[in-house]
Amino acid sequence: MKSTGKKKYINRKSQAIGWSFVAVAVVLAAVFAIYPILNSMYLSTMSGKGVVYEFVGFGNIKRLFRDAVFKQALKNTMVYFIFQVPIMLTLALVIASLLNDKKLKFKGFFRTAIFLPCVTSLVAYSILFKSMFSIDGLINQTLLFLNIIDAPIAWLRDAFYAKVTVILAITWRWTGYNMIFYLAGLQNIDPAIYEAAEIDGASKTKQFFLITIPMLKPIILFTSIMSTIGTLQLFDEVVNLTGGGASTPTFNATMTLSQYIYDLSFKFVPNFGYAATVSYVIVFFIAVLSIIQFRVAGDDHV
């Protein structure tokens, strides 16, 4: 009896010490992450301009379906997600598996060079791209010189090409980042598996699809969820690269959901309630898309 009592006392004491370690961070996270998440859920049922708010229930959600700018922003965000994420992840995977070759020369150089874009700030590289893609800028000059195009492309002004520019820029910035994850994953695959496949006469392409991809599945899942979260809250790039499409004919050809939330809250007469509703649209899509990706990857934990 005595010893269990003492043990309980020690256990309780060590639990108290444990809580003291996590306390500051937990309080901070509660105040600056958990509370805001709940508060914006509450705000999403309210509407009003400036300081006067009233309860509207699902009113904001109904408003979403009539809001042309919202629909445009949602469509743009989805276009970025559907095209950019697969292009980037495929590219990263191909580069990583080319680099994962013992006999490859200049391996360190290739790896460092392709990873280098990750050190730039999102604002800085967006502006670099903006200056390269201007109407008589470097990209158009080069394409004209190579006779690939006959007339300059309005990269930042045309509704279609502005999206292409945004996708190219994001792919430049993040491919190396994802490549590093794949390289780390590839190092854990036993080279003997590839040697056995080689002996069995499997081509490199076959090895890529039948060994590399299945073995990297958890990391591919991880990177694709991270990229989904990143793409759905895209803000810095579109704002600095195309101003959200301010110079496109419809003024919002590249606008994303995050940017629309920013505009609703801080640019126009603030309607925090409606903006909060739009923010929950992002939460909703991240949740749905993550679950779909888990399912596709065949992970039974969700």
Binding site: P36, I37, Q233, I261, S279, I282
Partner: peptide
């Protein structure tokens, strides 16, 4: 909370 984008936190 890591899954929740910053856009949903910034107004509160």
């Amino acid at each position: 909370t890591m899954m929740v984008p910053f856009a949903a936190l910034m107004i509160p």
